[in-house]
């Protein structure tokens, strides 16, 4: 045959690794925490801020941020809000059930940019989940960082995630923890108001503070304005952006922000780069 013979090496891009759920914890009415083990004790080897594609056969696949620190071995954890087809399916799974995992994908937080500095975490709603991987990482290597400040806001007290961790953070004198809810209920005794109301009161060493921001799309603009008024340099700000990451390998096109595939270059971006993308926020 005259046709040139080429043989393509086979690499698995779209097939998942069947993994086991080793624990499920109900966090709120809509959120559950899943602890997952890869087969054979294999490590996920992720960076804080990365995500995996979770699949249940028959239900499909969805991107979920990893919420545990890579220092917590050998399993990893996912906080899952019941919001779509796959996540509704996940919520019915129990300890011992299996699901498919692809990844980890994307660009996580550049931990080097946080080391030796004050670290400010700004989490809105479910945004605490991806941030928690970095928070736990920071706390696991506490002496490599200076101040640790966590600012967390949710719509209402019922949506507060990781209550046990929060209790620990509130008592730990090495952590400055602030939180607020948009709307209080009868039992709420803390701050009320949107998350940006917490930022003006912070006493920050602006040039030496690295900030990690994750929250719903509407939140970024306002948090960035608040940080600007605190004179935090743009290059100190890192944020994770939500998009429809379907294939995870920069092919399917869904997650694109202008020229950038979020599943490849993101979901964590440095703010000066985000500013160059018209579609980003």
């Amino acid at each position: 045959m005259e046709v040139e013979t080429i043989v393509t090496e086979k690499k698995e891009l779209y097939t998942p690794t069947i993994s086991e759920i080793v624990a499920v914890e109900t966090l709120t009415e809509t959120e559950k925490l899943f602890e997952i083990a890869l087969p054979g004790g294999e490590m996920l080897n992720h960076k804080p801020g990365q995500f995996v594609e979770v699949s249940i056969f028959g239900f499909g696949e969805a991107p979920i941020s990893i919420c545990s620190s890579p220092t917590d071995l050998p399993t990893f954890k996912l906080t899952v809000r019941r919001v779509g087809r796959l996540t509704a399916g996940m919520h019915r799974l129990k300890e011992g059930d299996r699901l498919g995992i692809r990844g980890p994908f994307g660009n996580g937080f550049d931990v080097e940019a946080f080391k030796g500095r004050d670290v400010l975490f700004v989490a809105g709603g479910i945004g605490l989940a991806p941030l928690k991987s970095l928070i736990d990482y920071t706390l696991a290597k506490r002496d490599e960082f200076r101040r640790v400040i966590i600012v967390y806001g949710t719509k209402n007290p019922a949506e507060i995630l990781f209550k046990q961790d929060i209790e620990i953070w509130q008592q730990d004198r090495d952590i400055e923890f602030h939180m607020t809810v948009d709307r209080a209920d009868a039992g709420w005794q803390g701050n009320t108001g949107v998350i940006t109301t917490l930022i003006p009161g912070l006493n920050l060493d602006a040039p030496e503070t690295a900030v990690a921001v994750v929250g719903p799309p509407v939140m970024y603009k306002f948090v960035l304005m608040s940080l600007k008024s605190k004179r935090i340099p743009d290059e100190n700000i890192f944020m994770s952006l939500e998009r429809r990451m379907k294939c995870g390998v920069g092919k399917c096109g869904h997650c694109q922000i202008n020229s950038v595939y979020v599943c490849q270059c993101g979901p964590v971006f440095n703010y000066p780069f985000v500013r160059s993308l018209e579609e980003a926020i």
Partner: peptide, 25 residues
């Protein structure tokens, strides 16, 4: 069952839609 892929397009309604309801384009 099977996991299938289909042609999609950035002009279509659900292309940039995420499960939470936000349509980014």
């Amino acid at each position: 069952g099977k996991r299938e892929r289909f042609w999609d397009g950035c002009m279509l309604n659900s292309f940039a839609l995420v499960a939470g309801g936000e349509n980014f384009r």
